[in-house]
């Protein structure tokens, strides 16, 4: 994928956050299906809309724009917040 030039905010997707998420989950979660806590819709993590990629990852539901997951890689550690998700389901479809 091309780069986010000039630090411009480009709406990417969960695929672009895969590296950061793999630092946290140790395995790739882009295929995992996540249920939005706000509207209940289910989508693959890789298909979620990604914001603020330069600061971390803010993954939002494609249907309702609710924040489903957030992650940050600081200089000391990694943070993950998933209060916007009802569930995360791994494994093959």
């Amino acid at each position: 994928m091309t780069e986010t030039e000039n630090g411009s905010d480009l709406v990417l997707d969960g695929n672009a956050a895969a590296g950061l998420l793999q630092e946290i989950f140790v395995s790739d979660i882009t295929s995992a299906r996540i249920q939005c806590g706000a509207c209940g819709s289910i989508a693959a993590v890789g298909s979620l809309r990604l914001y603020a990629a330069q600061m971390g990852a803010v993954l939002r539901c494609v249907h309702c724009d609710g924040v489903v997951m957030r992650a940050v890689h600081t200089s000391h550690d990694r943070w993950l917040e998933m209060t916007g998700a009802r569930s995360l389901r791994f494994g093959r479809l």
Partner: peptide, 9 residues
């Protein structure tokens, strides 16, 4: 330039 960074739409 003036980069844009937003946590949402």
């Amino acid at each position: 330039d003036f980069p844009v960074l937003s946590a949402g739409p």
